[in-house]
């Protein structure tokens, strides 16, 4: 399982060298705006966005929206994690014959299309948004768990059985740890999807949250305030991803390029 990954994980040598291009792009953008080449009502300078963002950070109203988004994001992800891992394990151990085709039917459905149904069933509040996050995030975790658990080296299982471990015990002492690298990769994908999904759900129908902030600003053409929620969700996504990478490095000390 490759831990290296362009979007995170890989330890880039020379952070300065890798941040430089981003700085160049931001500076060029800044310069274009300062020079008056684009109307500030269409594209605000990055410095203006950044200053507004910093100004808003201590604002209780803004933080309320951030908190609403985080509640939906994290609870949806947590439910998806619990459900994905348990269903994935179940499907890989025997239940596969029944669950596999069901998963095959459900996985390629664009979950966002289910959102109206969730709104009708769960209402306009947290529940429908959390449901959508779960529906979107559960499949990467489920499939990763399923594949990880299916590809457990049989001789690891044999070694455990021969050592007197029961079938049930090997699920927790062999199958789950073996599948862990794969599960964490699934989590990484699911986490990004959760960020995206919660934001979209809030844009489509909500009265609070970061997505709603963007829509509210768009209605009154406040371009700077449209960029702020985007910067915020991007930052949240990157921070959560960094947290996941840290957890991963913690949990996978023994895994890696053995053999």
């Amino acid at each position: 399982m490759s831990a290296s990954n362009i979007f995170a994980g890989e330890r880039l040598r020379g952070t300065a060298a890798s941040v430089l291009p981003l700085a160049v792009i931001l500076l060029a953008w800044e310069a274009v705006c300062r020079a008056g080449l684009v109307a500030p009502t269409l594209l605000p300078a990055p410095s203006v966005v950044l200053l507004r963002w910093i100004a808003l950070l201590p604002d209780p109203d803004f933080l309320h929206h951030v908190a609403q988004t985080m509640i939906r994001l994290l609870s949806g992800f947590a439910i998806a994690l619990a459900a994905g891992v348990s269903i994935g394990l179940l499907a890989s151990r025997g239940g596969g014959g029944l669950l596999e085709p069901v998963i095959r039917v459900l996985a390629p459905i664009p979950k966002i299309a289910l959102y109206p149904a969730f709104v009708l069933i769960f209402g306009f509040d947290h529940a429908s948004k959390i449901a959508l996050v779960v529906a979107d995030a559960v499949f990467p975790i489920l499939l990763a768990t399923f594949h990880g658990a299916r590809s457990v080296e049989p001789k690891l299982l044999w070694s455990a059985w021969a050592a007197g471990a029961s079938r049930r015990a090997t699920i927790f002492t062999v199958v789950l740890p073996s599948a862990l690298p794969s599960i964490l990769t699934g989590c990484k994908i699911a986490l990004l999807i959760s960020c995206v999904t919660v934001f979209l759900a809030e844009m489509i129908s909500s009265t609070d949250g970061l997505g709603h902030l963007l829509i509210r600003s768009a209605r009154s053409f406040r371009i700077v305030d449209m960029f702020v929620p985007l910067v915020t969700i991007s930052t949240i996504g990157l921070l959560l991803n960094a947290a996941l990478v840290a957890v991963r490095n913690r949990l996978l000390v023994g895994h890696g390029n053995h053999r």
């Binding site: 291009p21 979209l200 969700i233 996504g237 991803n241």
Partner: peptide, 13 residues
Amino acid sequence: PVLTAAYPIPKAA
């Protein structure tokens, strides 16, 4: 870094 920053942004947003 550009792609990394862009990844968690919902494109439809």
